[in-house]
């Protein structure tokens, strides 16, 4: 569905993507795990068409609806929790239902500055899920949430992604195995793929954690 062909991208003269080939098939959920600063986020932005490649191609379908959770929350500071969603054209009832699901039902009229870090993250998650679409790009979606909250939100994200195409960046093996059917272990910069296997090749999250710490 989305495909990068020989993608090359520099940032401030540093090579981040060095001739990367990557294909995201329709209906697959791909998780990328790798050390901080290896170029994962740049790869996501390249796949989503948010950054111009210096060389190479991005093949993406026309008329596809994409939804995002960025590494930063990127909420509108002048909009409350509810209108942060409706400002993007999300239906009001849909927004209210999603906010209730992530536990912000009582806080719909609060501005971002009145919400805690974890609540802001849940708001960003609610925005992405309520916006919906065919393809989801998630950059460390559960970052900054405590374990209890993660345990509630993770299954919700999983059910929202059913049948969709998704590209997920994470540091958490359990999150990767819960959500994804394909696991990419990466290094860099410049970004390179160490292992690209089905999620089923890891029996549990410990096995994946081992594979990350000693990838070769």
């Amino acid at each position: 569905m989305f495909e990068l062909k020989k993608a090359i991208k520099y940032f401030d003269r540093q090579l981040v993507l060095n001739s990367i080939d990557l294909f995201l098939p329709r209906g697959s959920i791909t998780a990328v795990l790798g050390s901080s600063g290896c170029g994962k986020t740049t790869l996501l932005r390249a796949l989503a068409g948010l950054t111009k490649l210096d060389k190479g191609h991005l093949i993406q379908p026309k008329e596809v609806r994409c939804s995002f959770i960025f590494q930063e929350n990127r909420l509108l500071p002048w909009r409350n929790a509810l209108t942060n969603l409706t400002a993007l054209g999300i239906d009001r009832d849909r927004a209210l239902a999603e906010l209730a699901t992530v536990g912000l039902g009582e806080d719909i009229d609060k501005l971002p500055e009145e919400l805690s870090g974890g609540m802001l993250r849940r708001l960003a998650i609610a925005r992405a899920l309520a916006y919906g679409g065919d393809v989801f790009f998630f950059d460390e979606p559960l970052q900054g949430l405590d374990i209890n909250t993660s345990q509630i939100i993770l299954p919700h994200i999983k059910s929202s992604l059913k049948g969709k195409t998704a590209f997920l960046i994470t540091h958490d093996p359990q999150e990767a195995l819960t959500l994804a059917d394909r696991i990419i272990i990466a290094g860099g910069p410049p970004f390179y793929i160490i292992k690209d296997t089905p999620a089923a090749s890891y029996p549990d999250s410990d096995a994946l954690a081992d594979a990350i710490s000693t990838p070769w």
Binding site: A48, L50, R65, C66, S67, F68, F70, E72, R74, L76, R79, A87, L88, G89, Y131, F137
Partner: peptide
Amino acid sequence: AQLLEMGQAFNLTKKTMLKEI
């Protein structure tokens, strides 16, 4: 720039980008 990229990513119209961002 992050909010503008957010708007672009969620495919906001020019009018919405102007009004909301």
